Amino acid sequence: MVTFDFGPAEVFVIRYRGRLPDARVLGALADLIAADAVRLLDILVVSRDGGGAVEVIEIDDLPAGSPFDTFELEARGITGNEDVERIADDLAPGTSAAIAVIEQLWAKSLAERFAESGAELLETVRIPAPELNAIAVAANIG
């Protein structure tokens, strides 16, 4: 039987105004973790203040009582510096981006079965929800 330490993961980059994400965003992520649907491998925030200065915020750097306190990172530091720099370059003053590496737990089992059978996953494509819904409307589906 083939087993992996980690399954497929996705990097989510969420841009917003201000320094830290809205508690509702973090709550949705916490709900998925509690339901064992995903595992949070890494998360950090890149913030550009009104003067243009960039700050990278690790959750360990936040004071106790922050909304990030509930998260345990399973692969801290997996987010690449090149990704952080690229995202920081695209931020307007007064905005931030949370970068979350999220393992899809259901997909881990699927990936193990693929490997076990000798199958090779060639590609996956994620279609963002707004785009998929626009496609469905255009095709008169739903």
Score class of each variant (00 low, 15 high):
V125E: 13
A35L: 07
A88V: 01
S109H: 15
N133G: 13
I57W: 00
A134T: 11
R24C: 10
A75P: 03
G118M: 09
N140Q: 15
R126N: 12
A9C: 09
P93Q: 05
A119S: 11
R17M: 13
F6V: 02
E120L: 12
I57A: 05
G94C: 02
M1D: 13
T3K: 14
S109C: 10
R86L: 13
F71K: 08
I57K: 06
L73I: 02
E85D: 15
I127S: 07
T95R: 09
P21A: 03
P67I: 11
R24H: 14
P8K: 01
V45A: 08
I102V: 08
L44Y: 06
E103T: 02
V54R: 04
D69C: 07
L91S: 03
V11K: 04
V56Y: 07
E103P: 04
T95D: 11
S109M: 13
P128F: 05
L110K: 07
E103G: 06
I87D: 05
F71L: 06
F71C: 03
D5C: 11
D36E: 11
L132K: 10
A136N: 06
S117C: 11
E120Y: 10
A139Y: 09
A88Q: 00
F6I: 07
A136W: 01
A129Q: 14
I87V: 12
I78G: 08
I33K: 05
A34S: 12
A92P: 02
N133T: 14
V11G: 03
I14A: 12
E55P: 01
E55L: 01
I127N: 05
P67V: 11
L29Y: 08
D42H: 01
S117R: 13
L110T: 13
G65Q: 05
S109A: 13
R126C: 10
A64L: 03
L91Y: 01
I78E: 13
L29D: 08
G50N: 03
S109R: 15
L91K: 00
A75F: 06
L73E: 04
P63H: 07
G51N: 14
I127D: 04
D31M: 12
I102Y: 01
A119P: 00
T124K: 01
D89M: 04
V45Y: 05
Q104N: 15
G52T: 02
G7T: 05
E72P: 06
E72Q: 13
G18W: 00
I127M: 05
G7N: 07
R17I: 12
G51T: 14
E72I: 10
V46W: 00
V46L: 02
R17A: 15
R76P: 09
L26E: 01
E55S: 01
T124M: 03
A37Y: 05
A34N: 09
P130M: 04
E85V: 14
A92K: 07
R48G: 04
Y16R: 08
L110S: 12
A107E: 11
W106N: 14
D69N: 07
L132C: 08
R76G: 00
L26Q: 07
